[in-house]
Write a protein that binds this DNA or RNA. Sequence first.
DNA 1: CGGTATTTTGATTTAGCTCAACAGACGTGG
DNA 2: CCACGTCTGTTGAGCTAAATCAAAATACCG
Lengths: 249, 249
Amino acid sequence: MSTKRETPLTSPSIEGHQCTVNLRLQKLGMVPFFQQLSEEQLRQVNNKFTATHYPSEETIYRQGGAATMLRVVVAGNVKLVYHTTEGDGVLLDMLKAGEFFGNPGAKSGDVYNETAQTQTKACILSIRLNDFRKIMDMYSSVAMGVLDITTDRLNQSRQRIQHLSTLPVKKRIAHALVTLANKFGEETSRGLLIQLPLSRKDLADMVGTSAETASRIMSQFQENDLITSGRQWIAIKEKPVLLQISAES
Amino acid sequence: MSTKRETPLTSPSIEGHQCTVNLRLQKLGMVPFFQQLSEEQLRQVNNKFTATHYPSEETIYRQGGAATMLRVVVAGNVKLVYHTTEGDGVLLDMLKAGEFFGNPGAKSGDVYNETAQTQTKACILSIRLNDFRKIMDMYSSVAMGVLDITTDRLNQSRQRIQHLSTLPVKKRIAHALVTLANKFGEETSRGLLIQLPLSRKDLADMVGTSAETASRIMSQFQENDLITSGRQWIAIKEKPVLLQISAES
DNA sequence: CGGTATTTTGATTTAGCTCAACAGACGTGG
DNA sequence: CCACGTCTGTTGAGCTAAATCAAAATACCG
């Protein structure tokens, strides 16, 4: 019955980028709230940033720590985790190049509300919050851009609340897969490959279920030929069907 | 066993305020993101707003409708609901005087992401989004204030995701009661009365459970003398204990 | 070719949902 | 002011989705 996949193959290996100046500028230019800036302005802004290279699975900052920096992903992936006093963690978001994190509006004394850690090797730019606030004051387009993104995240977050409150696990997972595919999907021979090492536990933490239940449902999807997956990777074969499952009756 | 409460009593009757100019100015001045404005600036801003008076249980706008206005509660309470295509609704937030709602960053073509309806009689100020955007461009303190609040809401929202993912209903309800008490609580002879008509169903929709389960747990709290409640009202007698329940082991 | 972490699968338990009936509270009209 | 009707809240019983506990199987690393 179980036609097992054999090979890991197309592992989403992210190259150990060095954060070259060119790459920095290019990525900063991609950040939505810097779009409006001229090349010259962008260069000035860039000077305020410091680049850091992290290995995989490294904690960048911890929930509750003093919030001092705003960061932008240049390469690699970062996950934001909200954790209880116990071990329980909730995976709030997975970020890719061009996304920011770290509480842009924080005032002195504020703390980070989540823990950020790298999911892969990553290159991260940081700017002191003071400096970033000056930039927002100077360029209202930046402030508006940040507001836009924050609003988007609020809406995502609210949608997730709705899902947690009203949908069964199967639909939540189907939805999560579609969302991940849209954000991280890359067309390959196996289907839309989610370019991101993602364990069953990670997936479970994204939809608020246990790793076992997540596994069971993934098996189900696999039997129906909707996905292919192996250790830490998932490829979507039938996105439309998953979308339909997530929404049906 | 069940020592029933008898009277409804201190119903949170909100007076049918007329939105007098004075009240408007006063309340606008209370809105966090207008704090920095001078009296003169505030008056100018005030001119851009239109006041509307709503009866109880009235829909102000619907999820999916074109987003054109930003609104501020002057008096009364408004609830934000996220609803499924089916009847299921999630109660996202309950607002009181001084709070805004309605997607400040929306661009033309955007829609409201939630439905807003009055919980009590209410007086609401509205401003066209275009006008509000001009104000944000002009006064960066306003933009920053909006960002602050949006960030707060995002954090609340994320905390709620965490609760839904990891806490049992009892703790979620205990937490919700404490939060409501902090926001709407008013010291009375019965304890901290939550000044807001709030049904079991509302409470259930706030924590993602069924009205029956909410009722059962409230009965339990009542037996332990932590709360008193009747039809559509709740008073907290032992906030510290509830807080403890929401966090324990 | 092992060794280890991840994933799968099974068995059992349980929190919370659903369905259902009832009771108390409130409003209303006689 | 009382009787009635309706809406909200309470309580019970059974059911089910999903958690938990426990092995086994597999995938990937070196």
